[in-house]
Write a protein that binds this DNA or RNA. Structure first.
Lengths: 143, 143
DNA sequence: TAGTAAATCAGAATAAATCCGATTTAAAGG
DNA sequence: CCTTTAAATCGGATTTATTCTGATTTACTA
């Protein structure tokens, strides 16, 4: 997804345009990486030094609902990245547990579906591979 | 895994036996369901009315390290169940997001491994299917 | 049975996330 | 362009899960 698409979705759904919202989206668009609310907050503060974290959390939550951001949970913390599943085929990620960097995996393991009990209503699933990316393996400190 | 195996592991590794530890393990052994720390705490209180939550959290953490409990994260909360992967073949779960009940899926989607970058060190992965079990579908309140 | 390290307790501290009442602002209409 | 108004934001308090800390108790060993 691109920044313009995300802003378009907001407009279509009747949400107001604010510089903070655009900035938040641009921050997420800038890297192939899951970011925590705190990460995002720090970066927004470059442009908006005294925004409240309520604003960040509320907007993140809105964007997740609208499918603009994808969410995962790592180390007991919500992490977010610009949605890419909307772009084309449904897929999953390899995630570096050090820096959050992602790369895509082709396909989806949900073809094991046939083994799921008939009376179980599937609402979602998660397939994620965790590990250390080459950057973090050579430079152990967080990037 | 059975309660006796779990206690055996504790003994082998030089951990002390306490009634609270056995009770905690028995609670987890009693159901095919992920339980939160709070769930576990409530149930232990039947036998030990004034145990501290530090004890529960510390023991859970120990048991996860020892492979006695399996951990997942749902709704920003740690959830635990007696390890079953140790029993036989490696597998994954279908989890009811209402009550935490689980059933097993055969196999593992990690055969998509070949698509993972060569320089990425895999340390773990997660494949979970979420939804509503038949019990919860017919009786919407938590069980 | 005494000594010791481990386990537990009780409550304070931390950290992520949410809530709340007051204030500001984007955008629609006159 | 100005007014209006609901949405967005602010700032700080609150909630909730989890961890820490220092004192006390207890399971095991010799």
């Amino acid at each position: 997804m691109k920044v313009e698409e995300a802003l378009q979705i907001l407009k279509e759904k009747g949400y107001k345009y604010t510089g903070k919202r655009e900035k938040l989206i641009r921050i997420c668009a800038a890297e192939r990486r899951y970011l925590s609310a705190k990460d995002i907050m720090e970066r927004i503060k470059d442009d908006y030094p005294n925004l409240s974290f309520d604003t960040v959390y509320r907007n993140i939550s809105t964007f997740v609902d609208l499918g603009i951001l994808e969410e995962t949970e790592l180390d007991g913390e919500g992490k977010y990245r610009l949605a890419c599943s909307a772009d084309g085929h449904h897929h999953h990620h390899v995630i570096c547990t050090e820096c959050g960097k992602t790369s895509s995996l082709p396909g989806c393991p949900m073809n094991i579906m046939s083994a799921i009990p008939d009376d179980f209503q599937v609402t979602g699933h998660k397939f994620e591979v965790y590990g250390t990316c080459s950057d973090c393996a050579s430079a152990p400190s967080h990037s």
